[in-house]
Amino acid sequence: MLGHELLDEWSHLRSPLHRTDARVKLPCALVLVVAIVMVPVSSNWLLMPFAALIFALAVASGLPGRWILKRLLVIVPFLAISGLLVALLPQAEASAVHHAGGVGGRQLVRHALAVWLSVGGKCVLTLVAATLLTGTSSSADLVRAAQALRMPHTLTALTGLAMTYLGVLSDEVARMITASRSRGRVSGLRRRAGVLCSVVVTAIVRGFERAERVALAMVSRGYDGRIPDLTREPVPHAQIAGGVCFVICTCALYWAGVGL
């Protein structure tokens, strides 16, 4: 059950963010992410108040800091490679400046650094925002929220199925790896890679077969291309008001910063 536990690892907590309906959190998170992404490079300082806002939300969520930081590891390679390119820029720029008569070299480096800080900061903040959303809501609630917010049926259906079966497939891969290990240690990198490839290929083939069986099971219960939406109780008015306040504050922060 490895994969399933990872999906809803912290959704059982009872922080204010956890108690907020996913139908409120999802649009708020979208607005926050869009506002952060739209911050121009010239207003990089605006990322600081957004960072403070997200930090406050992270504290309020009660999610372990280490767990959030682990989720950020995924962008480290991207930041490292792009940072390396920025670091190497002075050498490239020196030769270009030499040929171009020495005009604009330093500004180019400064601009590249600003762009790197902007993109890197936005990546970190949006990733933390997404982590807070997924860490404080169950996958089921998020799919239902997407349905309730009238997102395209195909998208929500695929997301729901992916969330449901991701765990099943990852469990299957884990079992296959355990089974291969139980039959002796494979020596040599090439052989190990070969075993891993065959496990992955088998998992893909089984995934297709399972998809066929799931489709049959859906058809046998009257599926007609549309996942029916089981409407739940309405969102409490106080939460809607809170969500609207959050969106207004986020937009106000953005416009105040960009307008300055």
């Binding site: 799919v143 239902r144 729901g160 099943v168 399972r210 859906m218 599926y223 996942i227 029916p228 089981l230």
Partner: peptide, 21 residues
């Protein structure tokens, strides 16, 4: 395999799937 048949996010959603259809 019941895992093939339980494709909705929660048990209640899954049991409602047929009647809603």
């Amino acid at each position: 395999d019941p895992a093939d048949q339980l494709f909705m996010p929660t048990v209640l959603d899954d049991v409602c799937f047929g009647p809603l259809n």
